[in-house]
Design a protein around this nucleic acid. Structure first.
Lengths: 192, 192
DNA sequence: GTATTACGCTACGACACGTAGCGTAGCGAA
DNA sequence: TTCGCTACGCTACGTGTCGTAGCGTAATAC
C-alpha cells in the first residue's frame, strides 16, 4: 500500500527483511517517538542496510504507516439495527484505537507533520478517517430516522464531540483509564 | 520566562535583536511548521548570528514558547455569577486560542514532542493548561452548586467534552468556521 | 578608564539525510 | 544449467543541521 512497488522479474525482496524493518520501526517508535525516529536506527535494529529501507519506502511517513497499519485499523461502524448499540461499537473502536500508544504516536505525527509530509496525511485520511467517519455519520443519521436523535441534530458536530472527547482523554491527557467513558458519551449524545 | 537569564554586569543584550528573533520565529513557524523550523533559518531571518540564538534559549521549544506566548495566553475563566455566562467565556477563550494558527502549531508540537522536549510540555502545562483548567473546573462546580448542572456531574469528563470538541474542530479538522459551536456545546453540556 | 559581558564570525565534530555505484546473491525464465 | 534481471550489503559522497568553542570587537556598568 505505502511501499514502493518492486519489479516482478529478477530477485524478489526478502519477506524476512521486510518484517524485520517494520518491527524495528514499531519498537523504535515506542522508545523514541516519531520525531526522533531515524532511518539509520531502523536499519541498524533490523539488521539490514540503510539503503534497503530507502529502496522500499519513499518517506519515513510511508514506512511508519505500513508498520502500524494494524494498530490504526479502526474499522467502520456497523449497522446492527439499534442506535445505541451501533454508537457503542463506534465508541469502543475509538477508545481501543486511541488508547493504543503506537496509534496515538502516529496520529499525532500525522497532524503535526501536515506541512512536511502531506502524503502521510492524505493516506491516513482516505484510508482510516474517511471510512470510519462516513459510517459513523450514517449510524447517527439512522438514529435521527428512528427518533433516537432530534430531527435537527447536527451530525458533524456530534461526530466532533464523540471523537474529540475520546481523543482528548486518551491521546492528549494520555489516560489509559477509559472505563465508563463510552457510556458517558452515549448518555450525553443520546440525551437520555 | 523561558529564556536563559543574562548577567547583570557587562554589555546588556540587544532588545532589538531579541524581538527580531522572536518575530523571525513566528513567521517561520507559520511558513514551515514546527518540525521544519531550524535555528539557522531563524538567525538568518533575524539578521543575527546563529550563536546568539543559542546563547539566549536552551532549546527550540523554549524559543517557540516565548515567541508565541501572547498567542497561547488563553487566560482563566472568570466568576461572573452566571454558569452559562462563565462557560460562554470559557468557550470563547478556547475557540479564539485554538483557531489561532500559531497557537495550534505550537500546541501540536508540545504534544507530539513529549518525549523529545519534556521542558516544553511541562512549561505549557503549568503556565497555560493548569490555570485555565482549574478555573474552568471551578466554574463547572459553581454550576453544580447552583443547580445548573446535576449534582453527580463528572467535571473532568465535561472538561474533556468541551476542550476535546473545540480542539477537534479547530485544530484537527482545521476549520476556521466556529460559528455556533460555542452555543451548541453549551446546550449540550447544560442539557437544557 | 577598566572590567565585564554580548555580539558576529569562523570552525569543528557529530549525526542524519537521500543518492550513487560497486560487486554479489538469489530468483525466474529460456 | 545457463542467462537475465533485480535485490542486497557495503562504501562513499555532498548537504544540512546540530550544539559548542574560540576569537576579536562592541557596548555597557562601575
Amino acid at each position: 500500500m505505502t511501499a514502493i512497488e518492486p519489479s516482478r522479474r529478477g530477485r524478489p525482496r526478502s519477506q524476512r527483511t521486510h518484517e524485520a524493518i517494520l518491527e524495528a520501526t514499531r519498537s523504535l517508535l515506542l522508545e523514541k517517538g516519531y520525531p526522533a525516529l531515524t532511518i539509520d536506527a531502523v536499519a541498524a535494529r533490523a539488521g539490514t542496510a540503510r539503503t534497503t529501507v530507502y529502496r522500499r519506502w519513499a518517506t519515513k511517513g510511508a514506512l511508519v504507516l505500513e508498520a502500524t497499519a494494524e494498530h490504526l485499523a479502526i474499522g467502520i461502524v456497523p449497522d446492527a439495527g439499534s442506535t445505541r448499540t451501533d454508537l457503542g461499537v463506534a465508541l469502543r473502536q475509538l477508545t481501543a484505537t486511541f488508547s493504543d500508544r503506537l496509534a496515538a504516536i502516529v496520529m499525532l505525527a500525522v497532524i503535526a507533520n501536515l506541512d512536511e509530509d502531506p502524503f502521510m496525511a492524505r493516506t491516513f485520511r482516505s484510508e482510516i478517517v474517511y471510512p470510519w467517519r462516513t459510517s459513523a455519520a450514517a449510524a447517527l443519521e439512522r438514529g435521527v430516522a428512528r427518533g433516537d436523535l432530534p430531527p435537527d441534530a447536527d451530525i458533524p458536530f456530534l461526530l466532533d464531540v464523540i471523537v474529540g472527547t475520546v481523543f482528548q482523554r486518551a491521546v492528549i491527557n494520555a489516560q489509559s483509564e477509559t472505563d465508563g467513558l463510552d457510556e458517558a458519551i452515549l448518555d450525553l449524545v443520546l440525551a437520555r
